[in-house]
Simulated assay, not measured.
Amino acid sequence: MKTYWTIEEVAQELGVTTRTIRNYLKSGELSGTKIGGQWRFTVENIRKLVGANSPLISFSENKVIDNNYQEVIMAFNLPIKSEKEGSDYRNLLLEQYNEVYSGENRNFYYEIVSPELIRIILSGSAKYVLNFGTWIEQKLY
């Protein structure tokens, strides 16, 4: 398993430019180590960057709004055959998320786990998560 990644590799993996990665370094959002004048990043460095808005952190920090509000979190993995299929799933889900659901107490997370697997994580009110989860199941399976 690879121990260190370069700026270019991290940018490619996250789907951003190398300038964005350098901006993260400058702002302190990303930390790394300089080896021979070149930045190198560990898995922990990268997870801290992308984990700052971790669904579990967001979920655990939310406050109860009133006695009727039930917050839930749902995560599931989707097998994909290609990067394009993963991108198509993401776009379809984001379109539905943005067009149909509204409100502050809802979150949608998308993660590329491997070239063969993506992870979708939903959090928010029980009604939102269960309805959106059902829609995903009907649409994708």
Rank of each mutant, 00 (worst) to 15 (best):
M74G: 03
R22T: 07
E71A: 02
N62M: 13
F59V: 06
F41A: 08
V72G: 00
Y110S: 08
E95A: 15
S87C: 08
E44W: 01
Y109M: 05
V50M: 02
Y69D: 04
I80E: 00
I136L: 10
S123P: 04
E111C: 11
G51Y: 02
D66A: 13
S27C: 09
V100S: 12
R90K: 15
K34A: 12
V50R: 03
N62C: 09
G28A: 13
D66W: 09
T134D: 14
I21R: 01
P55H: 07
L49M: 03
N98H: 15
G133I: 10
L56K: 13
K84T: 12
E85P: 06
N98G: 12
Y89K: 10
S31G: 14
G133V: 08
I65H: 11
G36S: 10
N105T: 11
N53S: 02
L117P: 03
R106M: 14
R119A: 10
N68F: 09
I112T: 10
S123H: 06
N23C: 08
F76Q: 00
N107R: 15
N107L: 11
G103M: 11
I73E: 01
Y97F: 15
I120K: 00
I21M: 05
V129I: 10
L122Y: 01
I57A: 05
I35K: 10
I120V: 02
